[in-house]
Each structure stands twice: as C-alpha cells, then as structure tokens.
C-alpha cells in the first residue's frame, strides 16, 4: 500500500518489500559480481532494520475525542497534526 509519508523514515512494509525484491533480483542471476555483492549487502542491511523495528516497536494507542469529527477540538487536531508534520 503506497504511503504518502515517503519523506519520513521508511515503513516496515517498505523495508520488508524491498528485501523481498532484493532477494528475487539476486536469485534471478544475470548480475555482475559487483551488483550481486551490493544487493547482498543491501539485503542484509534491510533484514537487520526489519528485525530492529520489531525489537523496538511499542504499541501506541490514542483515544480520539468524541468531538473530533466537528474539527473543533484543539487537542485532537494537534494530535493528528503532530503525526503529519512534514
């Protein structure tokens, strides 16, 4: 699923998907040795990052104030704005 927040650090999905395509490319062959070794290094790095994300993850739960749908509740807007900060 494409994410709009491409400017933020990559999502787990992006890393995991890139890892899968890296492996497929590497396994398909037809690469120079330099390319293959670069893909290998990238793949190992991606796997490391994925594991680290799982290790460090902590579930965040936020309650939306009941008035949020009127778009008048400041605290709620702040909460959403904070997440969308560019």
């Amino acid at each position: 699923m494409a994410k709009k927040n491409a400017n933020l650090s990559p999502s787990f999905e992006q890393l995991y998907t890139e890892l899968e395509t890296t492996i497929e490319t590497l396994e398909a062959g037809n690469l120079s040795l330099d390319e293959a070794l670069a893909l290998y290094a990238r793949g190992i790095e991606l796997a490391k990052q994925c594991n680290a994300m799982l290790d460090q993850a902590e579930l965040r739960i936020q309650e939306l104030a009941p008035t949020a749908n009127t778009l008048e509740d400041d605290s709620d807007l702040e909460l959403l704005d904070g997440d969308q900060a560019e």
């Binding site: 890892l19 899968e20 396994e27 290998y40 793949g43 190992i44 594991n51």
Partner: peptide, 19 residues
C-alpha cells in the same frame, strides 16, 4: 516475520555464494 527474515538472510547468503 522474524522466521521469514531469517530465511531471507539465508537466501541472500545462498544467492550471493552462487554469484
């Protein structure tokens, strides 16, 4: 996912060894 990541690392190693 963790099990897959382990498998993926093995596949990376195998494929690069092939290369």
């Amino acid at each position: 996912l963790r099990a897959n990541l382990l498998l993926y690392e093995q596949r990376l190693q195998r494929a690069s060894r092939e290369h």
